[in-house]
Simulated scan of single mutants.
Amino acid sequence: MMKPRVMSFCFAGLSLIIAAACSAPPPREASRPAPRTSENYVLTQGQTVTLAPATTLKLERINDSRCKAGAVCVWAGHISYRFVLTDKQGESSFVLAEDMPGAAKSVTKNGLVFTLQGVDPAEPPPLKAPAPDYRVSLRVNIAQPI
């Protein structure tokens, strides 16, 4: 049988071990960046960006049929943007535009929502000027895991 002093010492030691184990910080996990749920991109014609591993987006073409500054036009025209999304499902294309019949400012493709934010320059170029180097702003939101 243990003596009372030895037993007290054992309980005290056991209490210290339990207290140390409970107050110790949890083991460190490898830090992982928070997954992105949305991102803004600015693209020029022909530019490709990586949205996720094995997922890219290319601004394939800009079509600007808006009435040029200084021209006489029977209709205002529109500007549209053709994109190509490449991912594990293959390639798919879509068009974004603000005021074009049959196109929308936002579209959902393969779990991603693409929303047109704007274009720079916003105004059509002058009548005899070369086409500007457009910069298209686009927001990409994750609608479901990709």
Results as ranks from 00 to 15, higher is better:
47 Q>N: 00
24 A>Q: 11
28 R>N: 13
7 M>Y: 07
45 Q>E: 15
14 L>I: 04
96 L>F: 01
100 M>T: 13
94 F>G: 02
16 L>K: 03
118 G>L: 01
13 G>V: 08
7 M>T: 08
61 R>T: 09
129 A>H: 06
96 L>D: 02
98 E>Q: 15
39 E>K: 13
99 D>I: 02
65 S>G: 06
45 Q>A: 12
78 H>Q: 14
53 P>D: 13
138 L>M: 09
5 R>T: 08
103 A>K: 10
41 Y>A: 09
119 V>D: 02
19 A>F: 09
28 R>A: 15
122 A>P: 00
128 K>N: 15
1 M>F: 11
112 L>I: 05
112 L>D: 01
118 G>E: 03
85 L>P: 01
43 L>K: 01
109 K>M: 07
15 S>T: 15
64 D>E: 04
4 P>H: 01
23 S>L: 14
59 L>P: 01
58 K>E: 09
136 V>W: 00
98 E>F: 11
65 S>K: 07
104 A>G: 12
50 T>F: 00
65 S>M: 10
3 K>I: 08
13 G>P: 04
130 P>S: 15
129 A>K: 09
14 L>R: 02
61 R>H: 10
39 E>M: 13
131 A>R: 15
1 M>S: 14
88 K>C: 04
57 L>D: 02
8 S>H: 10
97 A>T: 08
13 G>R: 04
25 P>L: 03
11 F>G: 05
112 L>R: 11
142 I>W: 11
132 P>C: 03
70 G>P: 06
40 N>H: 10
28 R>S: 12
122 A>E: 12
127 L>F: 07
133 D>W: 06
121 P>R: 00
99 D>V: 08
68 K>I: 02
75 W>H: 13
120 D>K: 12
107 V>R: 03
44 T>Q: 14
84 V>P: 01
61 R>A: 07
117 Q>Y: 04
33 P>I: 02
20 A>H: 05
70 G>D: 04
105 K>Y: 07
33 P>Q: 06
27 P>M: 09
99 D>W: 06
47 Q>D: 05
25 P>D: 05
6 V>N: 11
17 I>A: 11
87 D>W: 00
91 E>M: 10
61 R>N: 10
9 F>E: 11
78 H>R: 08
1 M>W: 11
30 A>S: 14
131 A>Y: 06
123 E>F: 03
134 Y>N: 02
118 G>P: 02
79 I>H: 01
50 T>G: 08
29 E>R: 15
107 V>N: 07
23 S>F: 11
63 N>F: 08
110 N>A: 14
47 Q>H: 00
37 T>W: 09
39 E>W: 07
114 F>H: 09
1 M>P: 12
137 S>E: 05
37 T>N: 11
13 G>M: 08
141 N>W: 07
91 E>L: 05
50 T>A: 09
129 A>L: 10
117 Q>R: 13
28 R>D: 10
118 G>A: 03
139 R>W: 01
92 S>E: 11
72 V>H: 05
3 K>P: 10
76 A>T: 06
140 V>C: 04
75 W>S: 12
9 F>H: 05
53 P>T: 09
11 F>H: 10
10 C>V: 15
104 A>I: 05
143 A>H: 06
144 Q>M: 07
119 V>L: 03
135 R>E: 09
111 G>I: 03
121 P>I: 02
96 L>S: 03
29 E>N: 15
